[in-house]
Amino acid sequence: MTTALTTSPDAPGAGHPDGDFAVRLSHVHKTFGRPGTAAPVLDDISLTVAPGEFVTLLGASGCGKSTLLNLVAGLDRPTSGTIDVPGGRPALMFQDHALFPWLTAGKNIELALRLAGVAKAERQAEAERLLELVRLGGSYKKRVHELSGGMRQRVALARSLAQGSQVLLMDEPFAALDAITRDVLHNEITRIWAERRLAVLFVTHNVREAVRLAERVVLLSSRPGRIAREWRIDLPQPRRIESAGVADLSIEITEELRGEIRRHVQH
């Protein structure tokens, strides 16, 4: 999918050669409402995610991180700038699991497979494989309301994987879960990301979660959303969210985030 509204020859990469990226945003601006009157939500965002790379987008409210994800998902169009996702339509996971309550867990996944063009004969076996992958092997016939919050998000993850995209966008998918369940899902997403070599763009406002998961943390400023700073994280996976390495870096990033928020004090 290529959304080309204005062509910019100088697409910057974060150290990746041109053509070797999973997602590339070049000088993306987004304004809601009539141009010129409203303040921009996103201002000159340039960001490249390499194939198989795990990037978290971190920011306080008003930084436009969900807007950014919607743009990459193709649910909305940038006001200017280009977004390239060479692998086709990316998968998107929401904070709300967004599973369809009129279908069982297995049939939710099969619908995604069907819409992705998987042949009818293969769908059920593939749905069962995906449920095994998120360790919900026995839940094919379960209805959405029979599953716990954490299990729902794992089915939602399996449904996203069913799309067959190598790019997974996640919009605060664990924000509504309790700490223990979230911890379990961090392990799951790390394991599945490593197994499937997915490029993940993960939006959160939780600094520790960002550091726990990512190879690269990108901090967005608020109103307008701009890239403020980024960190590479070389700690080995799977990390523990309580570990000293995660904690130290979280403190550093939190300081930076607080600085960004303080800029908005009205004088």
Binding site: A91, F100, L111
Partner: peptide, 11 residues
């Protein structure tokens, strides 16, 4: 959210 989920799935 169902409509958005459907859209991302290609429906």
């Amino acid at each position: 959210v169902f409509l958005r989920a459907g859209q991302t799935l290609g429906a």
